[in-house]
C-alpha cells in the first residue's frame, strides 16, 4: 500500500468520515473511495452495500476479486451527567472501544478527578452538543435524573441522526418526559427512538451493573441491525 493512501485513510478516520479501501487481489492495485465519492465509483452499488453493513470483505466482480477494507468512524458515547453510573461506565466503555465524553453543567460533578481518563465538558448539553456533533456513529445517554439537564440533551439527540438514545427514569418519569417532548413538537416516531428506562433488563442494581446494561444495549443497537442484514 502506498504511504499516501494509508495516510488518506487515516485522515478520513480522524475526520469521522467513512471510507473504503478497494484492493484488487490479483494485481495489488488499490484505491481509496471516500463516503461522498462512492456514487462515482465503478463498484458504487457494492461499496454502498458494504458501507451499510459496516463490514470488510471480499467481492467478486466479472472474474476479478477485490478486498474491501471498510472503515467506519470510531463510535462515541455522549454521557450527560457526571454521576456515579457514568463513573462506572467510562472505563468499561473504553474496554469495548467506545469513546466517552462526559457532559454536565454542574462543576462540582464534572471534574477530571472524578473522570481521569475521558474528556469532561462542564457545560449545558445544548451548549456543548452542537460542537461535539451527534452523528450516526454516536450514542447519547442522559443520566442526571434532572429534566433541566436531560431534556435539552434528548432534544438535541432527537434532532440528530445518532444511533442510540437512552435515559434513566421510571415509567412515570418517562411518561412526564414524553408529554414534555410532545409539547416541544416531537412525534411518536421520534419518541420511539428513546430507550427508557435505559439499559437491557438484566435486573441491574448497582451503578456498575447499570453501566453494563447500558453498554450492552448500546452494543446491541450498534451491531444487531448489521447482523440481521448480514
Amino acid at each position: 500500500m502506498r504511504l499516501g493512501l494509508l495516510s488518506d485513510l487515516n485522515a478520513e478516520r480522524a475526520a469521522r468520515r467513512a471510507a473504503i479501501l478497494v484492493t484488487e487481489l490479483a494485481s495489488g492495485e488499490q484505491r481509496l473511495v471516500r463516503e461522498g465519492d462512492i456514487g462515482q465509483d465503478p463498484l458504487a452499488a457494492e461499496l454502498q452495500e458494504a458501507l451499510r453493513r459496516g463490514k470488510s470483505g471480499l467481492l467478486e466482480q466479472n472474474g476479478r476479486q477485490f478486498f474491501l477494507t471498510v472503515q467506519a468512524p470510531p463510535v462515541r458515547v455522549a454521557v450527560i451527567g457526571a454521576v456515579h453510573i457514568s463513573q462506572a461506565l467510562a472505563p468499561m466503555a473504553k474496554g469495548v472501544d467506545l469513546d466517552v465524553t462526559i457532559i454536565d453543567p454542574r462543576t462540582a460533578f464534572a471534574t477530571p478527578e472524578r473522570f481521569p481518563d475521558v474528556p469532561v465538558l462542564a457545560e449545558w448539553p445544548d451548549a456543548a452538543l452542537p460542537d461535539y456533533g451527534l452523528d450516526r456513529y454516536t450514542a447519547t445517554v442522559a443520566l442526571t435524573h434532572d429534566p433541566k439537564i436531560d431534556d435539552p440533551a434528548l432534544i438535541a439527540a432527537l434532532r440528530s441522526p445518532c444511533f442510540y438514545i437512552g435515559t434513566l427514569g421510571s415509567r412515570k418519569t418517562h411518561e412526564r418526559r414524553v408529554q414534555r417532548l410532545l409539547s416541544a413538537g416531537f412525534g411518536e416516531a421520534d419518541l420511539a427512538r428513546i430507550h427508557a428506562p435505559i439499559g437491557l433488563d438484566i435486573g441491574a442494581v448497582s451503578p456498575a451493573e447499570i453501566a453494563v446494561s447500558i453498554l450492552a444495549e448500546i452494543i446491541a443497537a450498534l451491531r444487531q441491525d448489521r447482523r440481521r442484514a448480514a
Partner: peptide, 26 residues
Amino acid sequence: TETDILRAAEEWRRAGRGVALATVIE
C-alpha cells in the same frame, strides 16, 4: 483497535522503518 494499528503503520513508515501490513481477508 484497528484504527490504532493503521495509524501506527503510518507512523512507523514515516520514521523510515520497513513495514508490512497483514489483513485477514477470508
